[in-house]
Design a protein around this nucleic acid. Structure first.
Lengths: 340, 340
DNA sequence: CTGAAAGCGCTTACAG
DNA sequence: CTGAAAGCGCTTACAG
């Protein structure tokens, strides 16, 4: 059962040539004759040869491995980006090593050490919620390992990034609420040290101001953006003297939380209160009313991140190649924000 | 910028000992003095040494890599299992290589070749929808690479498996519908060559029979279980002379599809028709009415799969260690199946 | 308790 | 067009 692994040497022996010749033939080296290449290819097949990529990686200094770091693999947005990254780099012969930080800075540090030790050729990462500095990411730079950040990005760090235009997405969402007749629009936002949430907040505020409304900080909440946060914040809004007639949420989870509380208190969505979420999670279209949401084309974000990391590791570009991509968001209109 | 990588030799040189001594010290070899170990550890830290796992893997014949194969990483169920697997194997010092088959047998074959070439120590896989034979998985056996199947399982293949008791989950769900007053219960099931869907179907049928109902094949549909399939099948059900008053769905996606069509045709759920889904996707609790569903504890499934693959690769167990785990499903009761 | 030597399976200048 | 030789960075019997 436990067979000896077939190596280059075995093919060489069977063909009475050297293993360097076999290696070159298999790698389609230009200076090898067609005949030898065919001969070698056939014998490799016959012996069921599987090249040991570990050995090749060690020798070449290229592992064909891309490390991916996300806070949690089972959040729809991240799993979609992961899907996109894997699809793209796989097509170029790279494999993905998937890791999860659980939003812990400590875990992020450990992961980065492990990825360095595994000698990944590049890293694609979304920062954890609590990651406020990035000295641990600087290690990758020291080791000349290219890095791409997506979604959660910190400013002033010279690195490739892929994000959507959060400001524009928020601005469009709030403008839409205003056009649908809302006069008093609340915002359920995320923590402001993360650029994307700050941008969404600013899109919200500037849309209000540009349309002649006052910005009222009493209508603004910042949280972890969990489903439960939406319920808590909506309860606060419904207790106000002057209840808002529109809510722009930086997450679909708080959007559904606020929808539920509205319903439980006999407020009609969209007639009494209109709601727009962010991320266009699949479930937003399953709800009744279905929830308008800003699509952030997560799979495209994965593809783009994959493309950039491939460029960075390919050697065609210099090792400190940097590209910053901002994708356009799309507002998906559904019943929850319908004008009556 | 592009610094030379620090190797064992560099530490050895700095300390005037051999690199074998350094290797042993770092690996906590019993026959090394404490003093040397400390000395080496300090110097390793000082020089910022990162062991090259590729080299160690090549030498030891163990890569500390686990391959994971899923049809798509961005399906909630799979991403949760992935999360569980990664958590478990990571704790034991293993990394996960994530791959996606897109339900294509061809792609599965390619992936298996790649995983073998990357010399993963073990593989955890969910079969693609169209995978009806497993000769390509037999390759792993030939290479003595342990394998664990989860969720989608084919019978009569001597391999470790982790699944939930689909029969029981379906039986419980249908019994509950009967107890809630349903007299005519339909089934939206999955393709029957996959054991899990056959088991759910049989749980459905036997629950009917055990409660004194007739099994009526007109009320049973098999499909890919997409959201759209639920809509299509519900439309058929609503056109019947005698419309069912209960539906047991083998997926939450078809459950939500049927809920929507019911609503669009002014049928009340649960008063006119009761619905139970399968998988307990998070969105089932967001809907109105929220949908009862059979929870298949996907993260636990990931943990269990991770534990088994760890046992199989650890060397404590023989390389053909096989364990078959069946997890208990839990019926989550919500409004969609409430007795009035 | 420590060192010298061989080798894991590849690739790649270099020489012919 | 092909071969001989060295080396990627580790670990591990073996010897002392």
């Amino acid at each position: 059962m436990e067979k000896k692994k077939v190596t280059l040497q075995d093919i060489a022996d069977a063909l009475n040539i050297t293993r360097s010749a076999v290696s070159k033939a298999l790698n389609n080296h230009p200076k090898m004759s067609k005949k030898t290449k065919e001969m070698v290819a056939n014998m490799a097949k016959e012996l069921n040869y599987k090249p040991n990529q570990l050995a090749a990686a060690l020798r070449k200094g290229k592992s064909k491995l891309i490390g991916v770091i996300v806070p949690a693999a089972n959040i729809t947005f991240f799993s979609s980006v992961i899907r996109g990254i894997e699809e793209t780099v796989n097509r170029a012969g790279y494999s993905v090593i998937l890791t999860q930080s659980n939003d812990s800075v400590e875990k992020e540090k450990e992961i980065i050490d492990t990825l360095i030790e595994t000698r990944v050729d590049g890293v694609v990462a979304a920062l954890g919620l609590n990651t406020k500095d990035f000295t641990h990411f600087a290690k990758l730079k020291e080791e000349s390992i290219p890095l791409v950040f997506f979604d959660r990005i910190i400013k002033n760090f010279d690195v490739s990034t892929v994000q959507i235009d959060d400001y524009q997405g928020a601005y469009d969402a709030v403008s839409h609420l205003i056009e649908s007749g809302c006069k008093r629009i609340a915002h359920m936002g995320g923590h402001q040290h993360l650029v994307l949430y700050r941008n969404r907040f600013e899109g919200y505020r500037n849309a209000l101001i540009d349309h002649g409304f006052n910005y009222d900080s009493d209508l603004v909440f910042f949280s972890d953006l969990h489903h439960e946060d939406g319920r808590i914040e909506m309860n606060k809004l419904l207790k106000m003297k002057s209840i808002p007639d529109g809510i722009f949420c930086s997450s679909d989870y708080v959007a559904v939380g606020s929808l539920q509380i509205a319903r439980e208190n006999d407020f009609h969505v969209p007639n009494d209160i209109k709601i727009v979420g962010f991320s266009n999670e699949p479930f937003t279209s399953f709800l009744d009313p279905d929830i308008s949401s800003v699509d952030q084309s997560s799979i495209v974000m994965g593809h783009k991140s994959g493309e950039i990391i491939l460029k960075s590791v390919s050697g065609n570009e210099s090792s400190d190649y940097v590209e910053n991509v901002i994708l356009k968001p799309t507002l998906m209109l559904r019943k929850s924000s319908k004008k009556f």
